[in-house]
Amino acid sequence: MANTTVPSSAPSPAPDPVLDAAERARRQRGKNLALFFSLLGFVALIYVVAIVRMGLNAPGH
């Protein structure tokens, strides 16, 4: 993993609050979408597994 931030004694420029808020909202939206698709995938997975297992337990299998 890249070592991206090295502590420096030089003063860093003040963060732009508008850009920060936009970036914060963008990251939160990304996390929300990731969580949504993860849960959707999990539900679909349980559904598929249930069908497969029912098929394996069917008579003659």
Binding site: M1, T5, P7, S12, D20, E23, R27, G30, K31, A34
Partner: peptide
């Protein structure tokens, strides 16, 4: 001795 990021992490950070 690490500079903290003021912004919360994104999806990539959780994958990391």
């Amino acid at each position: 001795s690490v500079q903290a990021d003021s912004l919360p992490g994104g999806v990539a950070d959780y994958i990391a």
